[in-house]
Design a protein around this nucleic acid. Structure first.
Lengths: 205, 205
DNA sequence: GTCTATAAAGTGATAGAC
DNA sequence: GTCTATCACTTTATAGAC
């Protein structure tokens, strides 16, 4: 295995990530990746052990950086509502800056976790579940969120909507990522129906 | 091609749908399908032209029934809010009764549309987009929905959350599909944040 | 309606030359 | 770091017997 920090290596990994994201892990052949890089398929094995190793490296890097960011946010102790807003915003920023990795995580995680080497995905999913249900439970307890909601349903609802945006978000589109995050937060927090008092309200700090 | 209504044919199609949904279209081999049916792979070709034909038949059947149901709802002329509720509920019912087909639609449509024979998926997507944006625009115009929302963002938000439920919905779970649909509607319409007037409100008919 | 047998193409990966 | 050459295996699909 050559230098882990080689520029060429990172280049190839980026190409692989884009192809995995666009066509799916399974449908992308090592020949496709090599073609995109302008080399032959055999040459890829100078940089990586296997196709699986490439996906592994892409997902590991993405999840480490994402959960590092989440940990930073939680440590700020902003209270349930502001923490929720920050976590959602951070997730949209990840979609913006690491779109391919997010798409792979979305599309392939379920199947890859079956393989031992990808067991850390399950660990991260559990961590994510814990983060959200704690946050929602705390928010319900202190009056920030409605008490009549099923925490599990809300968790999945938020998780799904946030990550699914990766499928249509266009980094070059007219809507900047901050604005989309804001729109999502508005819907999740306040709903789409009209209300008698449209003013912003704040129950927590 | 044998009788289109043969019981065996439908049986094989159901098996294929479950495997495509569970492991992905690409990862499911014709051998897998034949194994599940207790026959050899070659025998499948007595019933179907190709693996692609199987996916085609599954998706066509699903989309036809779903859009038939949508058309029925729209024709009732219930007004924006009640129509939205009915469409969301109908979609959850589809997840309940045709889980495999919905999962295939979710996971594979993007790639399959590239093939000419699956062009009708794009047509349906356009139809779906039209249905929702009309509904939301109408609802904003008559005061049922908030005027400060981007119709496109809300459309994608609802579409994604509703269909994504197929990934975790368990037909044998404790929450009946009607209740999940209701929870989703509550979140989408009213948000998860507390409000000063928690009472139900109705702006349209 | 299923099986036997097999073709034809694609796929992940390796060994060694340059 | 890339290429040449190639292996071992998988996959879709076909032809004809039973």
């Amino acid at each position: 295995m050559p230098d882990q920090n080689s520029g060429r290596r990172a280049e190839l990994l980026d190409l692989a990530a884009e192809l995995f994201a666009e066509h799916g892990y399974r449908s992308t052949t090592v020949r496709d990746i090599a073609d995109a890089a302008g080399i032959l398929s055999g040459s890829l094995y100078h940089h990586f052990d296997s196709k699986e190793s490439m996906a592994d490296e892409i997902l590991r890097g993405f999840l480490d950086s994402l959960f590092g960011r989440y940990a930073e946010i939680v440590e700020l102790g902003l209270g349930p509502r502001k923490t929720l807003e920050a976590i959602v915003t951070a997730s949209f920023e990840a979609i913006d800056s690491q779109q391919a990795a997010v798409a792979i995580y979305q599309n392939e995680a379920k199947h890859l976790t079956k393989l031992e080497r990808f067991a850390y995905i399950e660990t991260r999913n559990t961590e994510f579940h814990r983060l959200w249900t704690d946050l929602l439970t705390e928010g319900i307890a202190d009056g920030a969120f409605r008490p009549d909601l099923d925490v599990e349903v809300v968790f999945r609802f938020i998780r799904d909507t946030v990550w699914f945006a990766v499928h249509w978000y266009n980094p070059k589109g007219s809507l900047p990522v901050e604005e989309i995050a804001q729109q999502y937060l508005t819907i999740v927090l306040d709903g789409i129906a009209t209300r008698r008092r449209p003013a912003k309200r704040r129950t927590d700090g």
